[in-house]
Design a protein around this nucleic acid. Structure first.
Length: 263
DNA sequence: TGTGATGTTGAATG
DNA sequence: GCATTCAACATCAC
């Protein structure tokens, strides 16, 4: 269930379990999610290798290999990592797995197969090709304001655009809009500067809050919109009702009475 | 039984 | 070139 904070949690998990051990066996149960090489090539490329570190940018997690290459783990909607040693702990929808020297296994679970795995020889080139923006937590306020100036689409679409800033997903974008009282359909370059700054600050705050606690959406405080993503419920501000609409192609929850639309 | 779900991408359209 | 919309990807849960 990964947006930036969740992928950050995956990174921690990956770092704690899978670094500095040789991969002795690679198993591929379903190579559909492996994008740029075949299942057999994947096995050849990774057998005998060791992960020395990781790098996360938005929702993209790159495992750093001991030959300087990278393995991209993108979790899609339902990707998950499971480190286990007993066969019965193997996740139900494991698509591939690394067996380490110590007998433990890192399995990549993914029911919906929306994940994307790529073997990358040159990370800079890959990021360039994909036009992957800088991580949402590493951009500056100036950059954020500057980018918004020229954008005529909805603020929701802006926040979701991974080539401008990487890491915001559907739920977090709604949350940031809600907390800054900006209607998600607002036109990006029509939002007053002060509100834009607020948007930037809130985004940082919400992401950091989630990262600090490795939280799930459900663990958020009640005044967050997260657990109120139901039409017609009373919004956390207690006065307005939550409604939904499709904005920027995604189901978006907001509260008309609470959030102002700048057009 | 039908519907929609945390994400990305490519095609089609304006 | 840009922005937007839609369908597709595959499975599960309600």
């Amino acid at each position: 269930m990964p947006e930036l904070p969740e992928v950050n949690t995956f990174q921690r998990y990956f770092d704690e379990t899978s670094l500095k051990q040789k991969i002795v066996i690679v198993k591929v149960q379903d190579d559909k999610i492996i994008r740029n090489v075949s299942g057999d090539e994947f096995i050849d490329l990774l057998t005998g290798r060791t992960f020395t570190g990781s790098y996360r940018r938005g929702k993209y997690l790159f495992g750093i290999l001991d030959n300087g290459h990278h393995l991209l783990l993108h979790f899609g909607m339902t990707g998950d990592l499971v480190y286990y040693s007993e066969v019965e702990d193997q996740p139900r929808h494991e698509r591939f797995a690394f067996h380490f020297e110590n007998g433990y296994i890192l399995g990549f679970d993914c029911p919906r197969k929306f994940a994307r795995i790529s073997y990358i020889e040159n990370l800079e080139n890959y990021i360039e090709e994909k036009k992957l923006g800088e991580d949402a937590q590493r951009i500056t306020e100036d950059y954020f304001l500057e980018k918004m100036k020229s954008k005529k689409g909805s603020i929701k679409g802006f926040l979701l655009n991974q080539s401008i800033l990487a890491g915001m997903g559907n739920l977090y974008a709604d949350e940031v809009c809600y907390q800054t009282r900006i209607h998600p359909e607002s036109v990006s370059n029509k939002i007053p500067k002060k509100k834009k700054q607020e948007l930037f600050q809130k985004m940082q705050e919400i992401l950091q809050y989630a990262i600090d606690r490795s939280v799930n959406y459900k663990d958020y405080p009640e005044n967050y919109l997260f657990q109120w993503r139901v039409d017609g419920t009373i919004a956390p501000d207690k006065k307005s009702k939550v409604e939904s609409a499709t904005i920027a192609g995604r189901t978006t929850y907001f509260s008309k009475g609470w959030q102002k639309k700048y057009t």
